[in-house]
Design a binder for these strands. Structure first.
Lengths: 144, 144
DNA sequence: ATCCATTCTTGACTGATTCCAGAAAGGGGG
DNA sequence: CCCCCTTTCTGGAATCAGTCAAGAATGGAT
């Protein structure tokens, strides 16, 4: 887990101003992977840091643009953010409880970038979402 | 393109009541792949069929549950619907204009169902979204 | 220390989707 | 072919995530 000064340095390296909301939000994303915006707001405020929800939305957009966090949008869920960037990894989403876990790509570094027919598109990224049941939800599903 | 009676039969085979809104919505999804809800409402009304937007939302949910249409939610876009179901195919989304095209899976029928570490999840589906630029948007991107 | 651009706050607003309750319509059994 | 019950449709209001706008505050280069 990065320290407060690590976080600060990340901001500086991205040529971003270092402000209290940014430090708090970025630290929170590192502490709570896959958190949605509301959870992030709650977590930041729990640290006794007073921020408007607007500021959090702004900061998350800026951090995403700067590549410091990654925004993921699982089907049927609001936007979530994570700090793991730069490696091409994907996600499993539980159909039962919505839990999200990271998975590395089975094939290679740029795994699914090969579509059978790309229709002339210039493809630069592939988002993969696996859907299934987490270990905890599997027993419940069998009962029904 | 399925005829009106094909559409009707699809509904019956799914044990769904045959109603005007359902016929119209299902036909529209066949005619306009990747349409969002608003476009579907507009297209249905253009056929002089008067439906409430609520009915369209209902019908789409019912058809999705019955497996007659598939709901897709590209990042940064509202929900869209398509009639191609049952085959495991994916989508390319253009970063420029938002256009969506179908792509078959490069690897096989159940392509990316193999995650390197599945965390104990029971995975039954993989959604893949390729992001890039469509042929039309590529020249514009180069200018910037 | 000062100044300007950037960022934050407050509060209102949009747009997609859902909830609700009553009205209407499908279709299997008679 | 008709009736009744269940499912579906209508219209309106509500919710929820996310965005817009204008003014106040703050970071950091000089």
């Amino acid at each position: 887990m990065p320290t407060a000064s690590d976080i600060e340095q990340m901001l500086r390296e991205a040529s971003l101003r270092v402000t209290r909301p940014r430090l708090a939000v970025l630290a929170t994303v590192h502490e709570h992977p896959h958190a949605d915006t509301d959870s992030i707001i709650a977590a930041v405020r729990a640290e006794m840091i007073d921020v408007s929800h607007q500021a959090v939305y702004d900061v998350l957009r800026v951090l995403t643009t700067a590549g410091l966090v990654r925004r993921i949008q699982p089907p049927g869920s609001v936007a979530r953010y994570e700090s793991r960037v730069g490696d091409n990894h994907h996600h499993v989403v539980c159909r039962g409880c919505g839990m999200i876990a990271d998975v590395d790509c089975a094939v290679g570094d740029t795994p699914c970038l090969i579509a059978s027919d790309d229709h002339g598109f210039d493809i630069d990224e592939a988002e993969v979402v696996y859907l299934g049941l987490c270990p905890e939800c599997q027993p419940n599903a069998r009962i029904n």
